[in-house]
Design a protein around this nucleic acid. Sequence first.
DNA 1: GCAGCGCTGGAAAGCGCTTTCCCGCCACGC
DNA 2: GCGTGGCGGGAAAGCGCTTTCCAGCGCTGC
Lengths: 338, 338
Amino acid sequence: MSARQVTLAEVAKQAGVSLATASRVLNGSTRQVSEDLSERVLRTAEELGYVPNASAQALARNSSSLVGLVVHDITDPYFSCIAAGVTRVAEAAGLSVVLGTTGRRPEREAELLSTLRAHRARAVVLAGSRTTDRAAQSRLAAEIDAFTEQGGRVACVSQAKLGTDTVVPGNRAGGRALARALAELGHKKFAVLGGPSELVVARDRLAGFKAGLADAGIAPPVVINGAFTRDGGYAAAMELLGSKSRSTCVFAVTDVMAMGAMAALRERGVRIPEDISIAGFDDIPTLRDTVPALSTVRLPLEEMGEIAAGLVLDAGGDEARTIRVAGEVVLRASTAHN
Amino acid sequence: MSARQVTLAEVAKQAGVSLATASRVLNGSTRQVSEDLSERVLRTAEELGYVPNASAQALARNSSSLVGLVVHDITDPYFSCIAAGVTRVAEAAGLSVVLGTTGRRPEREAELLSTLRAHRARAVVLAGSRTTDRAAQSRLAAEIDAFTEQGGRVACVSQAKLGTDTVVPGNRAGGRALARALAELGHKKFAVLGGPSELVVARDRLAGFKAGLADAGIAPPVVINGAFTRDGGYAAAMELLGSKSRSTCVFAVTDVMAMGAMAALRERGVRIPEDISIAGFDDIPTLRDTVPALSTVRLPLEEMGEIAAGLVLDAGGDEARTIRVAGEVVLRASTAHN
DNA sequence: GCAGCGCTGGAAAGCGCTTTCCCGCCACGC
DNA sequence: GCGTGGCGGGAAAGCGCTTTCCAGCGCTGC
């Protein structure tokens, strides 16, 4: 075993050409190589089963074919959809994506970025939602700077103003539109399962929702914070049920949280939507077949991943670009007239 | 911008030591370095914000800190769970995982492996399910050989006998146990939504299920093949409904397919489980809160990912190891007595 | 007292590529 | 006819590390 990998030098020798020529043939060079030499090299490479050493290429070119993708939890459909979009675009461009997961610890984001920098990744998309944690945030900003200084590009999903390209979902607008749609159903008393208060995505959706209620002249909702997960939704819903606040409609800032909340409600014998209406945000594909079908704000998650990857892969100017994608309110069976 | 990255040489010079010494200090070497030199190097590295160039290290060591992960579709919860397990273990070991997606095209698997080989990935876990496609299979085998010859390790999830380490879920045993459990509920007429016939995972589950029915002295099920996706389940269920075969219990070889099937049944006004019982396989966490709760065979997906990563990361002997993980039948509300 | 050993530090040879620079060749133009 | 310029090919200098090998040095053991 361990038959050493065939190298460019071997191919060159075998084909009777110089290293330089072989390199020029096998990798897009601006330089022209004559037809016959070129073909000879190609054939030998094929015969020998030559595979270029990516590390060596990266070293010589000072830029690799890696693009980073940082998510909190690949298990969360929100992230896996974005990941699908990113990988599709990256692979189509002949790049490999290295996946980093933070486990929702903000400081991991900077660590991962540093690793990616070590690998001379040519770009990275940060899909994790931004926190308001000051320390982590500045450490991250420093890493982003270091990364871009080194020539890499960075794009964020859903977290503007880091001075990078960004695809921004209409969190606020979506929350607002949803609130208005729900108000039109006749609901007057709302509760929001609000996710962690440090997460700007959660805050934006909540803020939008409040604005929407205000638009409709409805009193501010009860807000219960909790983890950005199924269990967080479950716990928040339980807390809500305990609180004796008689809301007729609940907005969970995430579909995944909404699922947890619905489980809690069911467990307590609360019927959806007869007793309480509930809505989420994201429109996770995996959850589209649930009963009752969840009202939500649809985000084109995979497309967002594609856009982010596109942003990060074509050179682009120096100024940070921001692409906004709108959320679309989708009312389904989990919300009823009141 | 593009302030070139700090190199080891700079650190060494700044610290007044040789390149060799700096290298020895900053990366685990067997060689001892005196306390004061060592500390001096560490401090300067810190001050200068030194980050080792992973490509250069990979080149010099002839082995990178990358581990590959190949899945069909990261959006599918089955794969994203496995991915979570793999990344957790890999990141804990200080490695980065590069994610490749095949989009369910078998030939992509070999391509990705080749890319991974180019990157000198030290290991790869193949989570995509094996097909019986002869050509793709042999191309893949060749790539696996090339990869291991080069010194990399390969582990597969759920596809034994490729001569690699493997974690094998009890597909057959799970299917069989499920069939028996369902038979005990009194069902006599079964249908199976069987996935694509080339996929061995699908075949194994089906074969196990048939065996279980035989154990119980029940006639073989109607089998309808279809894609290994939600839509495949939907279509297969529609076909089943059209076929006038009056089964009382349906087994979809995948939870995701079961979801599609349930959607189809509901659409046609078939009540679950009153009119038809339905069961899946995998016990996807995201789907645990659905109503009616899906009966299924639970697989510890994340753990399988962790095991695979573990297999592939600790050296291990030369003989291929096989770890079996059992599926556990979980009967819930989607299946009723008949 | 000295050969020999273990230990630390440094010089330098790669690792497998890319790319600059140079060289020889040919077609042109005057 | 010869200078020029363009062009295809090769030699070789890196890219930033690791690691082998050697030098020096303080000890130990006879």
